[in-house]
Design a protein around this nucleic acid. Structure first.
Length: 579
DNA sequence: GCCGTTTTCGGCCCGACTGTTTTCAGTCG
């Protein structure tokens, strides 16, 4: 059993314990253990297999949970979990995901109405039945109807990080298959979209039949959806669908183009081909009159034969890239290796799980030249946010750690809350002592778009602010972005010389690709940061870079591609920009 | 259920909003 499966079952157990009204502190222990497992760098199976190691070495895992994990790895299931699953219907876990419903509400709905599905709940809300229950009323019914709609919209999609990991695992398994030479992910995963519907994998080499046979023995497969000569579709245990296609090398380029999409991009390409007397399909590019094959082995060949420069997958959304490729004015997209700094991360001082020194060493190991430690400020009480006094102490600590390290610049920063009225959560004289001030909205996210616009504009008036973190507050598959007048805010950001963040945390990816592209058009600089709460999160930078590439961003558009000293200089705001 | 210790029990994050109440439970971040 893998870490992910163990974490999932423990997390479900915690959810169900909550519905059952068990001790909240016990439940929190389960959740802490889940977090610990999620951010673990090694396989639990390896620890169990090593007689010199103990699970209880892992912080947040004690005797009981260690026993649970051992039971899971031995039996493949957990008695405690199964008992709870028997007690509550399968819909319980989904109901808990709905905004506006917590464990108490779910428990009441289950016992009073015997809700078995989202449809059941939807009907009850529409018929106004919920208001029969204590502490439930019309507003809640309306809220839940909205939540159900939002939930339906997002189910069946996965965060790019989840799809990426599963695709990599599947790919590695396939590469060990008979005669397999190459396994290439295509589809929205290759285009770097923020959420992924299914995983497309293209395989070359080996006899298709034997490869299919081998693939169907992949232990993670839970269901075979379709099986043909050259194509297999399966569902993995995590629920995501994987489509496997076996290709001839001579078709590879055309097929890769076809299966990478997007659909809109491919349609535009085929239209262009047709106008040139050519036909493009997944098997190649053909001259219709001569019935002859023109290209197909590589994508470059296909694009070239269509009179186009090679178009990077991230740009293939039919948003101007084909014209740009024809006129040889495609951007030189920013790359992961261009990134020199990471300007948003947390430490144990607030809700991070590693010390400043641990974060710094991990960043240096990843080849970064500079970082900023940006813990939360006091308004975020749930994260133990820092007040002025603690901020000053942390600045001193950071200077000390930096002086003991070679080859890494550590900026003293803060992720300072932007209050409802647009003021910042720290005194200006403390803010002015920080190297990097990242401003964030974490509260009052449901105010009107007009109020949110005013709030951000007001925050920009603070001369200490440098960067706006996760500007729309969205949580992918969970929470919609809050609304504000983006154009107005970006114009102000340009005038005030304030940068916007692409938050690389896979749940956020905020700004999104389209918004980041608007920044470029408006001349607003971008900073790509990981918002790491653990050293393992530093690797999420690649998802932020993918989003930046989808936004057509080049190295010069992204401030943290600059060397440390130049970056610091680039943050500075002139008196005119502050006024 | 975990952790730290003032070392085997007691503390564990908590303020604010929302909607439903008529003094506050549930949810959220």
């Amino acid at each position: 059993m893998e870490n992910r499966d163990i974490a999932r079952i423990l997390s479900e157990t915690a959810d169900l314990m909550e519905v059952a009204g068990e001790d909240p502190f016990r439940i929190r222990s389960y959740r802490n253990a889940v977090q610990a497992i999620d951010s673990l760098n090694e396989n639990i199976a390896d620890i169990l297999g090593n007689p010199e190691r103990k699970l209880t070495e892992i912080p947040a895992i004690g005797k009981s949970i260690a026993a649970h994990i051992e039971e899971l790895c031995r039996e493949g299931k957990l008695k405690r979990h199964q008992e709870l699953c028997a007690k509550y219907p399968p819909i319980t876990l989904e109901l808990l995901r709905l905004q506006g419903l917590g464990p108490k509400g779910v428990e009441v709905l289950l016992t009073h109405f015997r809700v078995q599905s989202l449809d059941d709940l939807e009907r009850l809300c529409k018929e106004g039945k919920l208001r029969e229950l204590p502490r439930m009323g019309e507003k809640l019914e309306q809220k839940l109807l909205k939540s159900i709609e939002a939930y339906r919209r997002i189910t069946g999609r996965y965060l790019i990080s989840v799809a990426d990991e599963l695709a990599t695992e599947t790919q590695q398994y396939l590469l060990r298959g008979p005669g397999v030479q190459k396994v290439t992910p295509a589809g929205s995963l290759r285009r770097g979209k923020d959420t992924i519907g299914d995983i497309d994998l293209l395989v070359t080499g080996g006899e298709p039949q034997k490869v299919v046979e081998y693939f169907l023995r992949f232990p993670k497969i839970s269901e075979v959806i379709a099986k043909g000569e050259n194509k297999v579709s399966v569902k993995l245990r995590e629920g995501i669908q994987v489509d496997l296609r076996m290709l001839e090398p001579e078709n590879f380029g055309a097929a890769l183009q076809y299966f990478t999409g997007s659909k809109e991009h491919s349609v535009a390409l085929r239209t262009r081909a047709k106008r040139m007397g050519l036909q493009l399909n997944e098997y190649g590019l053909f001259r219709v009159s001569a019935n002859a094959r023109v290209a197909g082995r590589t994508e470059k060949e296909v694009y070239g034969a269509l009179g186009l420069a090679y178009i990077e997958p991230e740009l293939r959304e039919n948003c101007g890239e084909i014209d740009a490729a024809a006129e040889h004015r495609l951007p030189r997209l920013v790359r992961l290796v261009d990134i020199r700094g990471d300007l948003h991360m947390h430490s144990t001082a607030t809700d991070g799980r590693c010390s400043i020194a641990e974060m710094a060493h991990a960043a240096k190991e990843r080849g970064l030249e500079y970082i900023a430690i940006t813990d939360h400020t006091k308004a975020l009480a749930m994260a133990n946010g820092l007040n002025e006094k603690r901020v000053l102490a942390q600045i001193k600590e950071i200077r000390k750690i930096e002086s003991q390290m070679e080859g890494l610049r550590i900026f003293a920063g803060m992720e300072v809350d932007i209050h409802q009225d647009g003021t910042l959560d720290l005194d200006d004289d403390v803010l002015s002592q920080l190297d990097v001030v990242v401003g964030s909205v974490h509260s009052y996210m449901t105010i009107s778009p007009e109020e949110m616009t005013d709030r951000l504009l007001r925050a920009f008036e603070n001369p200490c602010l440098h960067i706006v973190a996760h500007p729309t507050g969205r949580l992918l598959l969970r929470r919609e972005p809050f609304g504000f007048d983006l154009e107005r805010v970006l114009e102000a950001a340009k005038r005030r010389h304030i940068a916007m963040e692409i938050n690389a945390f896979p749940d956020r990816l905020d700004l999104c690709d389209q918004h980041a592209r608007l920044c470029k058009e408006k001349g607003v600089k971008i900073v790509i940061s990981t918002d790491s709460h653990h050293t393992t999160h530093l690797q999420n930078m690649k998802y932020g870079v993918l989003t930046a590439r989808r936004a057509w961003l080049e190295k010069k558009d992204v401030l943290n591609t600059l060397p440390a000293a130049e970056f610091k200089k680039a943050l500075q705001r002139s008196p005119a920009q502050v006024r």
